[in-house]
Amino acid sequence: MDGILSIIRDLLLIAGALAVLIGALGVIRFPEVFSRIHAAGITDTAGAGLIILALLIESGFSLISLKLLVIVLFLFFTSPTSSHALAKAAIHGRVLPLTHQDKG
C-alpha cells in the first residue's frame, strides 16, 4: 500500500513539474501577452494543483495538509482573478490582442 502511494506521489510530482516547465516555456514561446496568460495559467492550475496534491499524499493527515489545502484553494481562487485583471488592464492599456479571423 505504501509503495503504491509513493508511486502515485512520484507520478503526480512528475506531471506537476512538467506542467510548470511547459507553462514557463509557453510564457517564453508564445507571441504576445494574451497568449502568454494562457501558458502562465498552466503553472497556476495544473502545475500547482498536481504538485500540492503530491505533497498532500506525502504529508498524510495533519495541520500541514490543511495548510497545503489553503494554499491550493487560494491559488485556484486568485489565479483566474489576476489573469482576468491582467487581460483587462492590457486591453485598456491599448495592447490589442493579435487575432486570426480565418477559420482553421
Binding site: F34, H38, A39, T45, P80, H84, A87
Partner: peptide, 10 residues
C-alpha cells in the same frame, strides 16, 4: 479563465 486555452477578458 481557469481552463487554459480560454480567458475571460471582459
Amino acid at each position: 479563465t481557469l481552463t487554459p486555452g480560454t480567458l475571460t477578458i471582459e
